[in-house]
Nucleic acid binder design. Structure first.
Lengths: 202, 202
DNA sequence: TGTACATCAGTGAACGCGCGTTCACTGATGTAC
DNA sequence: TGTACATCAGTGAACGCGCGTTCACTGATGTAC
């Protein structure tokens, strides 16, 4: 992007900051309530702005959704990196599984994994939006593959895919359940299972 | 329910048939597009009815959603029973996994597993609707537990829960992907992984 | 059997509301000279 | 430095549309006698 400075009355940083505030708030809200559960006007109001100004920043709601999805992946990756930072190379995967299937993650949809939060509805979005998921998935999987057991790189990547998709499924069933005891049971069973399958623990 | 025949001009069967047609169509549409993606008027029109009559059968959309969810579970259970009917006791789980993670199931959201199709949005529904999920899950899990490896009944039930939630997650990630090759890879990786984990196959 | 009457599943116009989007306007900031 | 002018992020009223729900009405079917 080239900014022709002589035409700019406000410094670009000002507009960019607002835009980023919108994207961040959207990233949380969309994960909490889904795309259709978030109204532009409410979102802008939350930021002490009015809905009209929204269209200075985005072509429409779908563009915001797409950017919020990218931002969500960025955040989720950072969270997971933070959770595994202190672990030994061999313990990274265990830390990851425990963090992903924790009650904290389960209760905190808005700041958690976008695959889990938006899995179902992504299939209803534009192809361009869905390819954002594909890209993020491939990147993330490639980064984690080295820590997963498996004979070939391809096999390791496939196992990471299954680990992620599987854990997202467990998280979603836990979240959908109305019974708190059943929810805890599901999470615990998920941790036990995936730790055993991927870290060789009984 | 007691029908006071002398007050009935139409036989109860007539109204019941219409109601069931609505529930069945809804069960498919809701799974295909989600609750907010289905309009009452469209649904009724599909059945050559008009939207006004809808309220002779249901209090509102949420009641229909709940009934459609129950119907979806019934159908899904029947499908899975059919898929495993021919298998030996030891092969039931393998047949189940292959059917659940088949490309056919992946492409056929409307007639497939409601947990996979509606996982994300169930968390946004009333508690009464969500407890429908809990009940169906418990029933289904209890029925399958005998076929799953594990030392105690409790352990077996927990493993079935994880198997289901995990497969639903894999199916959803496959469905969300825009790239057909990646989709097939995910399904295949899922089958390989869950077969190995639950049926002891390499 | 035939006629008057009652019921109620289904009809379709209308209502109300939420929400995405548009648009004329404002006013703070920056440039030109 | 001061003044006139231009830009554009943000404002808030208004528009249009989809959709859930309501309601007065219809007409096919059944009962009463």
């Amino acid at each position: 992007m080239i900014y022709i400075i002589s035409q700019m009355r406000y410094p670009p940083a000002h507009k960019d900051r607002t835009r980023q505030r919108i994207v961040r708030a959207a990233a949380r809200r969309f994960r909490e309530r889904g795309s259709e559960g978030v109204a532009i006007a409410d979102l802008m109001h939350e930021l002490r702005l009015t809905h009209g100004g929204f269209y200075r920043h985005f072509k429409g709601k779908e563009e915001l959704f797409n950017e919020a999805l990218v931002e969500s992946f960025r955040q989720a990756e950072a969270t997971m990196n933070a959770a595994t930072a202190g672990a030994s190379p061999g313990g990274k995967l265990e830390a990851l599984i425990r963090t992903y299937l924790s009650e904290g993650h389960c209760d905190n949809r808005g700041e958690g994994c976008p695959v889990a939060a938006l899995a179902t509805e992504l299939a209803h979005h534009r192809k361009s939006t869905r390819s954002t998921l594909g890209r993020a998935l491939r990147d993330y999987v490639a980064g984690l593959a080295p820590f997963v057991p498996g004979d070939t790189p391809t096999e390791r990547e496939r196992r990471v895919l299954v680990l992620f998709a599987g854990m997202a499924g467990v998280l979603n069933v836990a979240r959908a359940t109305s019974d708190a005891a059943l929810r805890r049971t599901i999470l615990e069973a998920g941790r036990t299972f995936f730790l055993q399958a991927f870290c060789g623990r009984a």
